[in-house]
């Protein structure tokens, strides 16, 4: 899985450079998030602008990260959701769990 991370004052922006987030690569996302938590970084913005497709495993990996961040008094926020990806969050009611922003800048400003 190709992921790039940028450190900012208040949070880390993790950009997922993949078109699909599914049962094939979702465990890798969980590990990448765990690496950040172990480095003491628990405020994270996940940029999904390149993700065209997400399945239940991908959603599950994001929820797992969200819960882990919460237990460390941090937060995982999302930005850049494509239309169909956003509709999956709505169908599963996860849009009520995550704070979702149009852009990275707006997500960062919310911390």
């Amino acid at each position: 899985m190709i992921v790039t991370s940028k450190d900012f004052d208040k949070a880390v922006v993790m950009s997922i450079e993949e078109e699909r987030l599914d049962a094939h690569n979702s465990n890798e996302l969980k590990s990448q998030l765990m690496n950040l938590f172990e480095e003491g970084k628990s405020n994270i913005v996940i940029d999904l602008q390149h993700v065209r497709f997400i399945d239940s495993s991908g959603l599950g990996a994001l929820v797992s990260g969200f819960k882990n961040a919460g237990s460390r008094e941090g937060n995982v926020k999302l930005c850049g959701l494509q239309k169909q990806v956003k509709s999956m969050f709505e169908l599963t009611r996860l849009h009520r769990v995550f704070e979702i922003f149009p852009s990275e800048e707006e997500a960062l400003a919310s911390f």
């Binding site: 399945d55 239940s56 495993s57 959603l59 599950g60 990996a61 929820v63 797992s64 819960k67 999956m88 169908l91 599963t92 009611r93 996860l94 009520r96 769990v97």
Partner: peptide
Amino acid sequence: QTPDPELDHGRGVFLIRS
């Protein structure tokens, strides 16, 4: 029923059925 949003698994069959 919509799966518990706090769970990190168990949405696959729900999505298919939806």
